[in-house]
C-alpha cells in the first residue's frame, strides 16, 4: 500500500484494501456492548473519555459568549472534582480567535472546522483559504470534509489530491478528515474513503466519521470499520492515524463501548486523546455525571451540572 491509491474503479480499490461485510461487522460491534465495565475500570474509562472530548459548538447562532462558556466547560468540566480537561473545543473558523482568548494557556486545543463545512460545496481555492484562515487565527487542529460528490462519482484521485492540498494548507496544525459516513452510505465506501485519506495525511492526523449535520453520525459499526482501516494502515506503514467519531454519542455508556472497540482493535496506544477523540457536546455532562455517581455512590440529577441542556 505504498503507492498513492486512487484507482478509477471502486472494484480495484477493494481488491487492494478488501471489503466489509455489513452484517458481520455489526455482529462484531454488538459484542462491545456486552463488555461489563465496573468500578475502577469504569472510572478510568469515563475519565479517559472526558479527556478525549472535542467539545463542540457548530451553530449559526454561535457567539463569542457561547464560545466563552464552552471554553470554561472545556477547562473545567466539573467544578467540584478533579475531572480531566477535555481534549479540544471545536468551533467555526470565525470563533477561533475567541476560543484562543478564553482558553489562554490551557492545554485544551482549538479545533476549527473548515473547507466549507459541512457540505464542502465551495471551490477548492475557497476551502483552502478557509483552512489557512483558521490556522492563522490559532487553530491547533483543522476538521475538514472530503469531497463526497467526487467520491461517489468515482473521482478518487480528486478526493485524495484535495485532502493532500489541505494537509499542505494546515502547516503544523493537525488535520481531521471528515468522511461524512452517512453520505457514503456503505461500510465498503467508508473503508475505501478511510484508506484514500490515510494515504496522504500524517502521523497525528485523524479520520473522522461525520459532521453531525446529517441524520446518521457515529455508530459502533462505522467506528469499527475506520478503526480497522487505521489498524491495517498502521501495520502496513507504521503511520499511526487517529480516529474521531462525531455526532450521536450522547451517553457515557455509549462512549465506553466506543472505547472498548478502540481497546480491542487498536490496543493501548490509541487509548489517548492524541489518537482518539469524541466529537460531542452533551456527552461531556453525562460522563461527568457518571463520574460523580462513581465517586459519591448516588445517582445524579442532570441539571446539577453546568451547561446542562436538561432542565426538567
Amino acid at each position: 500500500m505504498s503507492a498513492p491509491l486512487a484507482p478509477k474503479a471502486l472494484k480495484r480499490l477493494f481488491d487492494k484494501i478488501g471489503t466489509v461485510d455489513a452484517v458481520g461487522i455489526e455482529e462484531r460491534v454488538l459484542k462491545y456492548g456486552t463488555r461489563s465495565i465496573k468500578t475502577d475500570s469504569k472510572l478510568w474509562g469515563l475519565r479517559c473519555a472526558v479527556s478525549m472530548v472535542d467539545l463542540t459548538t457548530l451553530e449559526g447562532k454561535d457567539t463569542p459568549g457561547k464560545v466563552a462558556s464552552l471554553c470554561q466547560k472545556a477547562i473545567e468540566p466539573h467544578e467540584f472534582s478533579d475531572t480531566p480537561k477535555v481534549a479540544a473545543v471545536c468551533v467555526y473558523p470565525s470563533m477561533v480567535k475567541h476560543a484562543r482568548k478564553y482558553l489562554g494557556v490551557s492545554p485544551v486545543k482549538i479545533a476549527s472546522v473548515a473547507t466549507a463545512f459541512p457540505s464542502g460545496q465551495a471551490p477548492l481555492k475557497t476551502r483552502l483559504a478557509e483552512v489557512r484562515y483558521a490556522v492563522a487565527q490559532g487553530a491547533d487542529e483543522v476538521d475538514m470534509v472530503i469531497n463526497r460528490g467526487a467520491f461517489l462519482s468515482g473521482e478518487y484521485a480528486l478526493v485524495q489530491d484535495e485532502i493532500a492540498a489541505v494537509v499542505q494548507a494546515c502547516g503544523k496544525s493537525a488535520l481531521k478528515v471528515i468522511l461524512e459516513v452517512s453520505e457514503l452510505e456503505t461500510y465498503d465506501s467508508i473503508r475505501a474513503a478511510s484508506c484514500l485519506a490515510m494515504q496522504v495525511i500524517r502521523e497525528g492526523d485523524f479520520i473522522k466519521t461525520s459532521t453531525g449535520k446529517t441524520g446518521l453520525n457515529a455508530t459502533l459499526g462505522n467506528n469499527q470499520v475506520m478503526l480497522e482501516a487505521i489498524r491495517d494502515h498502521y501495520l502496513a506503514t507504521g503511520v499511526a492515524i487517529g480516529m474521531k467519531p462525531a455526532g450521536g454519542i450522547r451517553s457515557a455508556k455509549q462512549s465506553l463501548q466506543f472505547l472498548t472497540a478502540v481497546k480491542e482493535t487498536l490496543g493501548d496506544r490509541w487509548l489517548t486523546n492524541k489518537r482518539y477523540r469524541f466529537g460531542a457536546s452533551s456527552l461531556l455532562n453525562d460522563l461527568v455525571r457518571q463520574i460523580e455517581k462513581q465517586r459519591t455512590g448516588a445517582y445524579q440529577a442532570p441539571y446539577a451540572f453546568s451547561e446542562a441542556a436538561e432542565s426538567y
Binding site: R35, I37, R231, K263, G267, D268, R269
Partner: peptide, 14 residues
C-alpha cells in the same frame, strides 16, 4: 509496527 494490547485499561471482574 505492532499493536500493544496491554494492561492500560483492564476490566474489573464483573
Amino acid at each position: 509496527p505492532e499493536l500493544i494490547f496491554g494492561n492500560l485499561w483492564n476490566f474489573d471482574p464483573a
